[in-house]
Computed example of a mutant assay.
Amino acid sequence: MKETIYIFSSGELMRKDNSLVFASEQGEKKHIPVENVKEIMVFGEINLNKKLLEFLSQKEIILSVFNYYGFYMGSFYPRTHNNSGFMILKQAEHYLNSEKRLILARKFVEGAIKNELTVMKYYNRRGRELSEHIARLEIRLLELNDCSDIPRLMQKEADAKKYYYDSFNIIIDSEDFEFRKRTKRPPKDKLNALISFSNSLIYSITLREIYSTHLDPRIGFLHETNFRRFSLNLDISEIFKPIIGDRTIFQVVNKGILKDSDFDKLGERTYLNDRGKMRFLEVFEQKLNETIKPKTKETSEL
């Protein structure tokens, strides 16, 4: 199975014969067999050249770049090999048709709330008293059917997210990671730093998976399609944030995998340092590689 390579050091990423080599600033060289790589995520400061990009394109390897604070900045994508004019026309048709767009957008929100409920019920069975939060979220889920437009649907999603975030202080054992308020630009405490970093990873991974299909990531349905960014990956990511990102957060906090020393602060901004990112990614990768059985009468757990 192909893997994702994470680069935290500064140096140069280059092509060497029919392989990749990363040379750190300290002079250490690491060979990366391209046959096993599906994506390279760069968190450090690296140099590269056109020869490398041509090779990545040839091998269909995606190169994603994150800034110093761990926020996703963008990706180099190999030449699109799954072009489908028919699919793009169908996507645009569904976006421009308000009824069809609403149906799809509702499904994204429904999937997100159902997975939030799955996470809350998982911890409720393990002694965390979340019955009231679950009941409120189930009401929000039912109310989605009454939404007649996208703005109202997004408001219901925001209401559901508030109840879901309120459950974090019951799920999380550590007072050092108390949830007070969702802050994004910048994240102002350690828990918000984890949420932002996790979401950034999921946006990037979802975009990578869209690339392997005939879908166009520029045409979303819940999030507005505009000139500034991809939107379909934002739609789909909402479904996976709870069961991959948030469960990773709960695990690294409740099991004491992350310490105070794994975070840095600059002004109002709190962020994971490189050591913290690596510890988080180790658990995050485990979640990505888990097999989750579809819920049936016989199986009711993640």
Rank of each mutant, 00 (worst) to 15 (best):
Y69S: 14
L144R: 10
I205R: 04
Y163P: 02
R180N: 07
V109A: 13
D216S: 10
M120K: 11
S200F: 02
L144D: 02
K38L: 09
R180M: 12
R275Q: 07
H31K: 14
L215R: 02
S148R: 08
T291P: 00
I150K: 04
N199M: 03
L222I: 07
G256C: 03
A160N: 05
A135W: 07
Q91G: 04
D176C: 07
R182N: 12
Q155R: 13
L117D: 06
V65M: 08
M73T: 08
N124D: 14
L13T: 09
L144E: 02
S200M: 00
S64E: 06
I210W: 03
G70Y: 08
L288E: 01
I103K: 15
R279V: 04
L201H: 02
I139M: 15
N97W: 07
E282W: 09
F230V: 02
N254Q: 00
L191Y: 03
Y163N: 12
E157C: 01
P187E: 05
L96Y: 10
E268K: 15
F55R: 00
G70N: 11
R128I: 06
N289L: 11
P151C: 10
R247N: 06
I62H: 13
L102Y: 03
S261A: 08
N192G: 08
E39M: 10
N192D: 13
E209K: 01
E28R: 15
H81T: 14
N47H: 15
A158T: 10
I205Y: 01
S131M: 10
L302A: 04
R185F: 03
K100D: 10
M120H: 05
V119A: 05
T80Q: 09
F250G: 04
R228V: 12
E60I: 08
G27M: 14
S148V: 14
F86H: 05
Y211A: 01
E238S: 03
R152H: 09
P242A: 10
M278F: 08
L104K: 09
A92L: 14
L215E: 00
L117S: 02
K293G: 00
K265V: 08
S261K: 11
P217W: 01
E116Q: 15
Q155I: 12
L288N: 00
M73R: 15
M73D: 06
N82D: 01
M87C: 12
K255R: 12
R247Y: 00
N49Y: 06
A23Y: 08
D235G: 04
I171H: 04
